[in-house]
Design a protein around this nucleic acid. Structure first.
Length: 467
RNA sequence: GUCCCCAUCGUCUAGUGGUUAGGACAUCGCCCUUUCACGGCGGUAACCGGGGUUCAAGUCCCCGUGGGGACGCCA
């Protein structure tokens, strides 16, 4: 049987990190098994579903490179099908109308809670015919009362829940629209889903859904419930609490491959391996290797991973993503060195593309102020003479490339009998405005001859005026 | 409250009855070094508690404790 998995988000917000990981696992498993990965949008809650959320989810999937073979399929397009099934359930006695008002149900729940028992619908409408024609009603699934539901979770093992814990859930609202537990089952059947991989907040829904499968005479898929992701502080991630959308990671300067690598290692592992190409992930992924315990999101490790990717990934590739940040920060790239050169120069000093962009600014734009601390430390009286000597030597460098530029700097050191430690820092500050940069030869070459010389001259003037 | 799930360094994890409990991030120290980094070497650091089972338990069982989830005309 060919494997078919699905990722089924509800469009009530952006694609957050937990959802992204679930999507990744579904994708990975389908790819590994040579199966089909389906994207299904669970938008039956018309109150809260928005097009903006749908777009955000699609954008997130795309950015992460999680391509789907079928979909997006929208549940709102399938209402007729759900109605059909609800009617079938009704006809076969697996469902019934319930005329209780929301208030009535609320009261029932309160009473039950007060009596310290689990709130459950008491079937007061079962077997009741319409008390008054035209009265509003919902439709409830008639859950078995005896026995229990047992399923073999692919990551947790055997899970058994007694039917006495379950009640008759609503499968169709007053307005006739279907609810989650019904639509999931109908879709999983119609789409021939073989493996359901989802968050473990759905464990409790699973037995209800299995009962619906049975009532429909269908075989339920295999379930894998993956644990939640906690925040940096160990608390549960939620929209109110640190759960940012995946696109925020793009904005913050992370490479999608790094995010995917980080995500896959959160709850899944293959021995001691930390770095995985997509091919490796696909080849090595296994549901049994998913961890049972929830894991905390650790930004520092993501940063490390991101730097690994910035360093190791093809510069051309990184440049595409870096370009976005330059555009975003309004830096004109045509006004300086090629992005790939900047990447090679800075990749060992940036954990994010965002950082890299900020520290690459002086390659493209002139700065107006020097870093205050460095200014105080380096631009002391007499340093103008060092810079003047550098200027003299650099002006006559024939080929503005690393070796000659380096030679010129060293020549000044010899001439003034100073160590590079005395000459370098002021030069660096003069041309970059900061106390840190790649090595000076590389930095000067990337900044360019004319711009470098002008900046040195400017620094000389500045120091003289200051002291 | 009831039911379900979970539990190894601060964090991500390896570990499937016998290990000096391994790796990675972070952290600390040293080395490299024109700055900042990268890198290299080394260190600190964990089996939630209590009972069993067993010659032997991080690993199996039970009970606590702690955390999470569910109990919606949300998904």
């Amino acid at each position: 049987m060919k494997v078919r998995t699905r990722f089924a988000p509800s469009p009530t917000g952006y694609l957050h990190i937990g959802g992204a990981r679930t999507a990744l696992f579904c994708w990975l498993y389908a790819r590994k098994m040579g199966g089909t990965f389906i994207l299904r949008v669970e938008d039956t809650d018309r109150e809260r579903s928005t097009q903006a959320s749908v777009d955000a989810i699609l954008e997130g999937m795309d950015w992460l490179g999680l391509d789907y073979d079928e979909g997006p399929i929208y549940q709102t397009d399938r209402f007729n099908r759900y109605k059909e099934i609800v009617q079938q359930l009704l006809d076969e006695g697996h469902a019934y109308h319930c005329y209780c008002s929301k208030d009535e149900l609320e009261n029932l729940r309160n009473e039950q809670r007060a009596a310290k028992i689990k709130p459950r619908y008491d079937r007061r409408c079962l077997g009741k015919d319409s008390p008054h024609e035209g009265a509003e009603s919902v439709i409830r699934f008639r859950n078995p009362q005896e026995g229990s539901v047992v399923f073999e979770d692919q990551v947790r093992g055997r899970i058994e829940i007694s039917n006495s814990e379950l009640d008759d859930l609503i499968i169709a609202r007053t307005d006739g629209t279907p609810t989650y537990n019904l639509t999931v089952v109908v879709d999983d059947i119609d789409m021939d889903i073989t493996h359901v991989i989802r968050g473990d907040d759905h464990i409790n829904n699973t037995p209800r859904q299995i009962n619906i499968f049975r009532a429909l005479g269908k075989q339920p898929p295999l379930y894998s419930h993956v644990p939640m992701i906690l925040g940096d502080d160990g608390k549960r991630l939620s929209k109110r609490h640190g759960a940012v959308g995946v696109m925020q990671y793009r904005d913050d300067g992370y490479l999608p491959d790094a995010v995917v690598n980080y995500l896959v290692r959160l709850g899944w592992s293959h021995g001691d391996q930390e770095l995985f190409t997509r091919e490796e992930m696909i080849a090595l992924f296994a549901l049994e290797d998913i961890n049972k315990a929830p894991s905390a999101f650790n930004t520092e490790k993501l940063q490390w991973l991101n730097q690994q990717y910035i360093k190791e990934q093809d510069a051309e590739d990184v440049a595409k993503h870096l370009q976005w940040h330059f555009d975003h920060q309004g830096i004109d790239v045509s006004n300086g060195p090629a992005l790939t050169e900047v990447i090679d120069a800075l990749k060992e000093r940036a954990k994010t593309l965002d950082e890299l962009t900020v520290s690459a600014r002086y390659f493209y734009e002139d700065f107006t102020v020097y870093n205050a601390k460095a200014d105080k430390k380096q631009f002391k009286q007499g340093v103008d003479a060092i810079l003047a000597a550098l200027l003299t030597k650099l002006e006559v460098v024939e080929e503005w490339s690393i070796k000659p530029v380096y030679a010129a700097i060293m020549a000044v050191c010899d001439e003034l009998e100073l160590k590079l430690g005395k000459v370098g820092p002021p030069l660096r500050l003069a041309v970059t405005g900061t106390a840190m940069s790649p090595s000076l030869d590389v930095t000067l070459v990337l900044i360019g001859r004319e711009r470098s010389l002008t900046r040195i001259q400017k620094a000389i003037t500045y120091i003289q005026a200051k002291n």
